[in-house]
């Protein structure tokens, strides 16, 4: 049996595990509800603020809907991925089989990430469909798949961070709280730094702000879209352009480093049992 097949077996297992959980289904429902609320709120706004381009409003709907939700779902799915096998004592069952640790962690990562992509796909599709219903015919819909891929790629940052904590701490809740804490802290600090940059003009503030995990996560998708169809005016927040290549690179660095740390932790340490 090849590397790919063994990874695929674990990937399938990860899907099975995620779908067996009611909370994954609940999250998907919640994401759809959130997406709907955002678009309905937008539709209300449109009545009063009219300088919006109606025919591309679906982009704004999709992006606004994902903003908070995607990192949160990513954190929750990844935070339980490795840790739960230790906490439940099932890691022994899996790793006493003819599979390398690299194959195991690869399957786990891709499995969890593809579940996340499914959720993102559903919310993106919901955003598009609702926009059509609420605002009439939309243009530039051919960008939707790219927007989906960009959203998926940007969610790698918090997915990987949470995945790393999941393996390093081997405690699901601790991993999720840590990753979520970083998300909140990064958002707050990033805001303060941008403000300081505006006030003082000191470049360093901006650099640090961009290096924090939230900057690339929240901006990459809109940078990509604006690259394709130009900037958009949103009643909530403008869809702005920016250095999407820098954002892409930062995302890759966060994801890569997290994966390497998780792998080293897995390979270099004992498979712990429930009580450890």
């Amino acid at each position: 049996m090849s590397f790919v097949r063994r990874v695929a077996v674990i990937l399938g297992y990860e899907w099975r595990r995620a779908l067996a959980k009611k909370w994954v289904l609940a999250l998907i429902v919640l994401a759809i509800v959130f997406q709907t609320l955002i678009l309905v709120a937008l539709a209300q706004f449109i009545g009063t603020v009219l300088e919006v381009e109606f025919d591309t409003i679906w982009v704004i709907g999709v992006l606004q809907g994902q903003g908070l939700f995607v990192p949160l779902i990513a954190i929750i799915i990844a935070g339980g991925s490795m840790s739960e096998e230790y906490e439940r004592g099932t890691a022994d069952i899996l790793l006493s089989k003819p599979i390398t640790k690299v194959e195991y962690i690869t399957g786990k990562f891709l499995g969890g990430f593809s579940v996340l992509c499914l959720v993102e796909g559903i919310t993106t599709a919901t955003g598009v469909v609702l926009s059509l219903g609420l605002f009439g015919p939309q243009s530039e819909l051919q960008v939707a798949p790219v927007l989906f891929l960009a959203i998926a790629y940007s969610s790698l940052v918090f997915f990987s961070l949470s995945f790393m904590f999941s393996e390093v701490f081997r405690r699901g809740t601790l991993a999720m709280f840590t990753a979520f804490g970083i998300f909140i802290a990064s958002s707050v600090v990033s805001g303060i730094l941008s403000m300081l940059y505006v006030l003082t003009g000191e470049q360093l503030y901006e650099y640090i702000s961009k290096g924090l995990p939230t900057w690339s996560t929240t901006n990459f998708a809109q940078f990509v879209v604006s690259q394709l169809i130009g900037t958009l005016q949103s009643p909530l927040q403008p869809i702005s352009s920016g250095d999407f290549q820098l954002a892409a690179a930062i995302i890759a660095v966060y994801a890569g480093a997290s994966i390497v740390i998780a792998l080293v932790r897995l390979v270099k340490s004992d498979v712990s049992k429930k009580a450890d």
Binding site: I93, P98, T100, K274
Partner: peptide, 17 residues
Amino acid sequence: PVHALQKVGYAPELPTL
């Protein structure tokens, strides 16, 4: 592990499945 464990069956102590 791929070759060493292919022909091994393991029943852990107080298994949690």
